[in-house]
Design a protein around this nucleic acid. Structure first.
Length: 336
DNA sequence: AACTTAGTCAACCGCTCCAAC
DNA sequence: AGTTGGAGCGGTTGACTAAGT
């Protein structure tokens, strides 16, 4: 049994709001506030609307200081950085962009910004089924490098799984591990947006060096001010409070990020393997890796301290920890 | 001019969270 | 401690418009 609906769907108006309805809602809230009860509000305001619909209309359109129109490069940069690190937490992203709503940012990302970035990627990433590697994985700077050792003419592909913890904000971190000197093809599967050379070439990253100076401050203060200085206005609900539910949630959600950022930078690089049948399958595996990384919304689900190797075999892609052999491990991507 | 396709974005849906009881 | 129900969130839908054929 599901829960009771919040309103009588048959007796509420749906669809686009008329100017008259907007006026009624705005006048009511200007005069009485929301009263902390959206469900009761439409009846009091004389609106035949669901309370949720009123709330949405107010937050996304009618409340003061809403900013519509073009997003600036700076806003693009902030959205990309945050998306790369926290994913589709639109309300949190919106909280960093005064006047913007989560809905606006979500729409902007889905319809424009994502495509803008896709256009800058190598063509083999343009297939929608194989999303590009700059999409969010976590705030960690984990990455997978693939190299191909053509010099030895053995068609072996080497994947390097890096785990990096860094004191700099994710948007400005760089994975510094160079490809092995023998490699001729180098593909960087960075999981953080700014580590990609493509991303770095975008207009909103042009002043990255300058921003690295700012990186000296705590990233949590920079992006999530509730961890240090001022509270910020959420563009989702317009609140400007340190108290209440939202911030509690964020504190919980970001706990491990916070912790991670305060580690000293260190990087591990583990090489492994690969026994598969040749360079012609290269794309197959790069695509699978992309897909895996993309689907793994939070690679911390895989313990980065444990995963030391990625091993490809005919049965799939395996992560191998120190205590297990390939045979003992379960593939993280199964071979088709 | 008529039709189709693609893009945009406001609004809805269904879920989780959590305060109040 | 368990239940209820409102608030808030993110994903998705669909109406509308613009561009292309």
């Amino acid at each position: 049994m599901g829960r009771a609906p919040c309103c009588d769907k048959a007796n509420v108006k749906r669809g686009p709001w008329s100017p008259e309805e907007d006026t009624k809602l705005k006048e009511y809230i200007d005069k009485h506030g929301t009263g902390g009860n959206w469900i009761a509000l439409p009846h009091k305001a004389g609106l035949k609307r669901c309370g949720k619909s009123c709330r949405l209309r107010w937050l996304n359109y009618l409340r003061p200081n809403i900013k519509h129109g073009e997003f600036s490069d700076e806003e693009d940069r902030i959205i990309c950085s945050l998306y790369a690190n926290i994913g589709s937490r639109w309300s949190i992203i919106a909280a960093q962009l005064p006047g913007r709503t989560d809905n606006d940012i979500k729409n902007y990302w889905n319809t424009k910004l994502k495509k803008k970035l896709m256009a800058l990627l190598p063509s083999h990433h343009h297939n929608q089924q194989n999303p590009p590697p700059f999409f969010p994985y976590s705030s960690s700077s984990s990455s997978i490098h693939m190299t191909t050792d053509n010099n030895n003419n053995n068609n072996h592909h080497y994947y390097y799984y890096n785990t990096t913890t860094t004191t700099t904000p994710p948007s400005m971190s760089f994975t510094t591990a160079p490809p092995p000197s023998t490699s001729t093809n180098y593909y960087n599967y960075n999981t953080t947006i700014a580590t990609s050379p493509i991303m770095s070439s975008l207009p909103f990253y042009q002043n990255q060096q300058q921003e690295q100076q700012q990186a000296l401050m705590s990233p949590m203060q920079q992006y999530y001010p509730m961890f240090g200085s001022e509270g910020s206005c959420s563009s989702s609900d317009g609140s400007c409070s340190h108290g209440g539910r939202e911030i509690k949630k964020e504190e919980m959600g970001f706990h491990h990020h916070h912790h991670m950022f305060h580690h000293h930078e260190e990087q591990q690089q583990q090489a492994m393997v690969v026994d598969h049948d040749g360079i012609n399958n290269n794309n197959q595996w790069t695509e699978k890796l992309d897909k895996w990384l993309f689907q793994t919304a939070n690679p911390l689900d895989y313990d980065l301290e444990v995963i030391k190797q990625l091993v490809i075999s005919n049965d799939g892609l395996f992560s191998v920890d120190e205590n297990k052999t390939v045979q003992e491990s379960k593939p993280i991507i199964y071979s088709d």
